[in-house]
Amino acid sequence: MKKLMFYCQHILGMGHLVRSMEIVRGLTKDFHICFINGGEVIPEFQVPSGVEVVNLPAIKTDPEFKELQVVDHAFTLTEVQEIRKNLLLSILDKFQPDILMIELFPFGRRRFSFELIPMLEKVQASQSSTKVVCSLRDIVVTKQNQARHEEKVCKLINQYFDLLLVHSDPKFVSLEETFSRIQDFNCQVYYTGYVVQKTSENPVFSDEDKEIIESEQPLILVSVGGGRFGHELLDCVVKTAPLLEKIIPHNIQVFTGPFIPDEKFQELQTLKENSNNLRIRRYTPYFLNYMQKADLSISMSGYNTTLNILTTGVRAMILPFTGNNDQEQTIRSQKLNVLGITKTIYPQDLQPDIFAWRIISYLEKQINKIKFDFNGVENTAKFLKDFVYKEKIA
Results as ranks from 00 to 15, higher is better:
His16Phe: 06
His167Thr: 06
Glu44Trp: 07
Gly323Val: 12
Pro258Glu: 06
Gln144Met: 10
Gly257Pro: 08
Pro285Gln: 01
Met317Phe: 03
Tyr194Glu: 09
Thr142Arg: 13
Lys3Val: 03
Lys239His: 14
Leu12Pro: 04
Pro118Lys: 00
Gln188His: 14
Ile99Phe: 00
Ser361Ile: 09
Thr330Asp: 12
Cys8Val: 13
Val140Asp: 01
Phe374Glu: 06
Thr240Asp: 15
Gln124Gly: 15
Met291Glu: 14
Ser223Asp: 04
Lys2Asn: 14
Asn86Arg: 10
Leu116Gly: 00
Val123His: 02
Ser20Thr: 05
Pro218Arg: 09
Val71Lys: 03
Thr142Ser: 12
Lys239Tyr: 15
Ala241Ile: 05
Ile309Gly: 10
Arg315His: 14
Leu100Asn: 04
Ala394Met: 12
Asn375Asp: 07
Phe45Arg: 00
Leu271Val: 08
Gln269Phe: 05
Ile248His: 11
Asp349Phe: 08
Tyr303Asn: 11
Asp209Arg: 10
Ile309Trp: 06
Ile213His: 09
Phe255Asp: 03
Leu17Thr: 03
Ser223Met: 11
Asn186Trp: 11
Thr284Val: 01
Leu336Lys: 04
Val123Tyr: 01
Val195Leu: 12
Pro258Lys: 06
Gly227Tyr: 05
Val24Gly: 01
Leu363Ile: 08
Glu214Gly: 09
Asp235Asn: 15
Lys29Gln: 13
Val173Trp: 14
Thr199Tyr: 05
Pro285Gly: 02
Thr344Glu: 15
Ala74Ser: 15
Lys392Met: 13
Leu116Pro: 00
Ile359Met: 11
Ser126Trp: 03
Pro48Arg: 02
Tyr362Pro: 10
Ile36His: 02
Asn186Phe: 13
Val166Cys: 08
Gly39Lys: 00
Arg110Lys: 07
Gly225Phe: 12
Ile360His: 11
Glu245Ile: 07
Lys335Gly: 11
Phe172Gly: 09
Val24Glu: 03
Glu150Lys: 02
Ile11Tyr: 07
Met119Phe: 01
Leu4Met: 05
Phe75Leu: 05
Ile248Asn: 10
Leu136Asp: 01
Met101Ile: 01
Val132Glu: 01
Lys122Met: 08
Ser129Thr: 13
Asn202Trp: 07
Pro43Asp: 08
Glu364Ala: 15
Asn145Phe: 09
Gln96Lys: 11
Ser126Val: 04
Tyr190Trp: 09
Ile248Ala: 11
Leu268Cys: 03
Phe112Tyr: 11
Ser200Pro: 13
Ile23Ala: 04
Ala394Glu: 14
Gly257Asn: 07
Gln217Glu: 14
Gly15Ser: 02
Asp373Gly: 06
Cys8Tyr: 06
Phe172Asp: 13
Ser168Thr: 13
Gln144Val: 10
Ser49Lys: 15
Val377His: 02
Thr130Leu: 00
Gln292Pro: 04
Phe172His: 14
Met300Asp: 10
Ile359Lys: 08
Met21Cys: 07
Leu384Gly: 03
Thr28Gly: 09
Gly257Arg: 07
Glu64Phe: 10
Ile213Ser: 09
Gln366Lys: 14
Glu232Cys: 13
Leu339Arg: 14
Val141Lys: 12
His32Cys: 15
Asn145Tyr: 05
Met21Ser: 05
Leu339Cys: 11
Ala394Cys: 11
Gln217Thr: 14
Phe374Thr: 07
Leu288Asn: 00
Asn308Tyr: 05
Ile309Cys: 13
Met5Ser: 03
Val18Asn: 07
Arg332Ser: 05
